[in-house]
Design a protein around this nucleic acid. Structure first.
Lengths: 255, 255
DNA sequence: CACTAAATGTTATAATTTTAACATTACAAC
DNA sequence: GTTGTAATGTTAAAATTATAACATTTAGTG
């Protein structure tokens, strides 16, 4: 008589598979049993569906597992990223076609895109695509290929040509390291090609990095500092720090 | 003094951006204000973050918006889809390279892919990609392009060539209508090319449809019934119903 | 500095969810 | 049928979360 429980779980799982939450009482009605039974089912298999304040959600849904490790320190870093994107946002105009790089730096920017009348976003990052997909005013172009979980991005041989064919207005590029002598770098080699292609195709190149990346060098080099038209950052010293050792001069935005 | 609220919201948004939930009390501590203030912030902007039983989650997280329309009738349909996919699953072998079509029909199948040792999934649907992305044993190839919200799929001119270059083992195709005379059809025209390309490239073509699609014709025709090697369905009468009017004979799986 | 209004905090109360304990029902073996 | 066991239902109490009302603080203004 253990099948019953499994069958109910399957029912609920399917009900939730298409996305959404289900109230405990609805779940009970759906299966024709009491709420208590559903609770017991869920307790027996906590990995499939989780109960969040009386509502059932798929356990593997990204964004359901609790976050424990939030120190004050991290909070301020989050705020920093948000402020960084607020500054970056000033460069966006209605009707723009934006290339949006991978990583978490530019995510706050995506949340602010709903305010515009019409935009086009081009990206090769799954998290960026997911953030933009629900926005009705944003046209989304995802550059596909083989998925790399580490960076949540796609990569393919033909991505460079695909990018060339697109009319990119502004390229928002993120980085894991920025050094005046050693250039701009990231962690993963498969990110290099799309970044370079986007920078080559774009009319304006904007590097968005918080101050913690300065003086850091990561394995995958992809550009020199003066290839960028604008550098959006959050450190006061940044302008002099960057301008010192170079002849060309990107606009540097910092408080 | 409205900036404060916005700043807190940004903080929380960033805290949640990496995925996870945050308890109301932690959120309050994080921002250095009372829980009540966080509640008020959230109420003012209900579209960014939603409060689920005392926990904050990103509102756009797939699987957080409530499901309202779950009648008994639909419950049985969900079960039907699940059973359908259980039957379809029998055709999957370890090491396979699968093309997975768009729509909700094949979603239950994605939840069962974690059981295999190694698989490759090729798709042009965002919801399929999101379901598969977290699985460590599945290699994901997403066919990119312009995003069509109605079907959660991508489309591009070069998709057909991209598919040709891939070694597809089995193509799992879904449909919105199946008629012996008028063929197999779907709602959106931009789905036709990828479906046809996948069918052409695949070694085995499997049509997965529940019985409610029989005798239905939808705007976009993409194949005739006998182009499929296998038809996975859930109606008892299906085998005779389909085999009657055709000379070629796909294997038809039904209870 | 006083004054106003908005923002935030505090508290009590209401509503909801969770837990636990015990009652009932359904099923299987004899 | 009887009996035993597992599954499910019911109910009350505990814990948590949501709401509302009012108190307090804060920022801006003349």
């Amino acid at each position: 008589m253990k099948d019953r429980s499994a069958l109910r779980l399957a029912t609920l799982q399917e009900a939730l598979a298409s996305g959404g939450t289900l109230h405990l009482r609805d779940a009970a009605a759906l299966c024709g049993v009491s709420e208590m039974t559903i609770r017991r089912d869920l307790n027996a298999h906590p990995h499939v569906i989780s109960l969040l304040g009386g509502r059932l959600v798929m356990a593997h849904t990204p964004g359901v597992t609790p976050v424990y490790d939030l120190s004050e320190q991290q909070a301020s870093r989050y705020q920093a990223k948000s402020r960084l994107c607020q500054r970056a946002q000033r460069f966006i105009e209605d009707g723009d076609t934006l290339f949006v790089d991978c990583g978490s730096t530019l995510m706050p920017l995506m949340n602010q895109l709903g305010d515009y009348r019409e935009l086009t976003v081009i990206t090769y990052a799954l998290n960026v695509a997911n953030a933009v997909a629900p926005l009705p005013n944003v046209r989304l172009v995802l550059l596909g290929g083989l998925f790399y979980p580490a960076s949540q991005t796609f990569a393919s041989d033909t991505m460079a040509e695909s990018i060339e064919r697109l009319g990119i207005n502004k390229a928002f590029i993120s980085a894991a390291g920025v050094d005046v002598q050693r250039g701009v770098s990231c962690f993963h080699f498969h990110e290099v090609l799309p970044k370079q292609a986007a920078m080559a195709a774009a009319m304006q190149r904007l590097l968005v990095v918080d101050a913690s990346k300065f003086g850091v060098v990561r394995p995958a080099y992809f550009a020199s500092v003066n290839e960028f038209d604008v550098i959006v950052t959050d450190e006061e010293g940044a302008p002099t720090l960057l301008r010192d050792a170079q002849s060309a001069s990107p606009t540097i935005t910092a408080p």
